[in-house]
Amino acid sequence: MLLDVRNLTITGDSDHGPIDVIDRVSFSVAEGEVHSLVGESGSGKSLIASAIMGFLDPRWTVRADRLWFDGKDLLSMPAAERRRIIGVDIAMIFQDPRSYLDPNDTVEAQLGEAILDSDLSSKHWWSRRKERRNKVIKLLHRVGIKEHQAVMESFPFELSEGAAQKIMIASAIAHRPRLLIADEPTTAMEPSTRQQIYRLLGRFHASHKMSILLMSQDMGTIMPESERLTLLYSGQIMESGPAQALLKEPFHPYTEALTSTSLYQQSRCEPKTHLPTLTGASPPMQHLPIGCRLGPRCPNARRKCVTTPQTRKLRSHFYACHYPLNSAAKVQGND
Rank of each mutant, 00 (worst) to 15 (best):
L3Y: 05
L3S: 07
T9D: 02
T11A: 01
D15N: 09
D15M: 02
P18R: 07
I19R: 10
D20H: 15
V21R: 14
S26D: 01
A30I: 00
E31K: 14
E33I: 01
S36K: 07
L37F: 04
L37D: 02
L37N: 05
S41I: 06
S41H: 10
L47I: 14
I52Y: 10
I52L: 11
G54Y: 10
F55Y: 14
L56D: 11
D57G: 12
T61H: 15
L67E: 11
D70Y: 06
D70K: 07
D70L: 05
D70H: 07
K72F: 00
D73W: 02
M77H: 05
A79Q: 12
A79P: 02
R82W: 01
R84H: 05
D89Q: 13
F94K: 09
R98N: 00
S99Y: 06
P103G: 07
E108C: 02
E108R: 09
L116V: 02
D117W: 11
S122I: 04
R128M: 14
R129D: 04
E131T: 12
E131M: 11
E131V: 10
R132D: 11
V136I: 07
V136F: 01
K138T: 13
L139S: 04
L140Y: 09
H141A: 12
G144C: 03
G144R: 06
E147I: 01
Q149E: 15
S154T: 05
P156S: 06
L159K: 04
E161L: 07
E161S: 13
E161V: 02
Q165E: 06
M168L: 06
I173Y: 08
H175E: 03
R176M: 04
P177N: 08
L180V: 06
P185S: 05
A188F: 02
M189F: 03
T193F: 01
T193H: 04
I197C: 02
Y198W: 04
G202K: 06
R203V: 00
H205E: 07
H205G: 01
H205Q: 14
A206N: 12
L214G: 00
S216I: 02
Q217D: 08
D218M: 01
T221L: 13
T221E: 10
P224W: 10
L231E: 03
G235H: 06
G235Y: 03
G235P: 09
Q236W: 05
I237M: 15
I237K: 12
I237P: 06
E239V: 08
G241L: 10
A243N: 07
K248V: 00
H252P: 07
Y254V: 06
E256I: 00
E256T: 01
Y264G: 00
Q266I: 00
Q266A: 14
C269D: 00
P271F: 08
L275K: 09
P276Q: 07
T279D: 13
A281L: 12
S282I: 15
Q286Y: 03
H287E: 14
G291V: 11
C292Q: 09
L294C: 05
C298S: 10
A301T: 14
A301W: 09
P309M: 12
T311H: 08
Y319I: 08
H322A: 05
P324E: 11
N326Y: 09
S327G: 00
A329S: 13
V331T: 15
V331E: 15
Q332D: 14
